[in-house]
Amino acid sequence: MDIPRHWRLQRQRYALVGEVCKKCGARLFPPRDVCPQCSQPAYEPFQFSGKGKVYSYSTLYQAPAGYEQFVPYTVALVQLDEGPLVTAQLTDVDQDEIQIGMPVEMVTRKLREEGEDGLIIYGYKFRKQPAEAA
């Protein structure tokens, strides 16, 4: 059981809330309180749009404990429209349609369950954007 850790990360995981640097305007995800661009404090919360593109990806057939029920699944580096690169699982997508540069959007999904009697952990994943929106 690791409840405090999951609880602390809820805000960023459920809705992709990061931070913005008031000095240089850089958008940070995950939130880290110090701007990596200009080294100034950055505490201001920032709601990301959830839109981005696949920067790179890898498909897993042997999953780590807790993720077995999703295999095969793809983990992607997603370049958010606002800049940061985020590592996340792709969902609702067929393996053969995934491409570098594919427009994706954030959805909140079940990441895993801590057994049948444990916590259900929710967080961001990305799915292919509908064609008309891309």
Binding site: D92, T108, R109, K110, L111, I120, Y122
Partner: peptide, 13 residues
Amino acid sequence: PGPDEDTATMSIE
């Protein structure tokens, strides 16, 4: 629903 969906995730969308 997909394997990563439930009433909570569907309600959120």
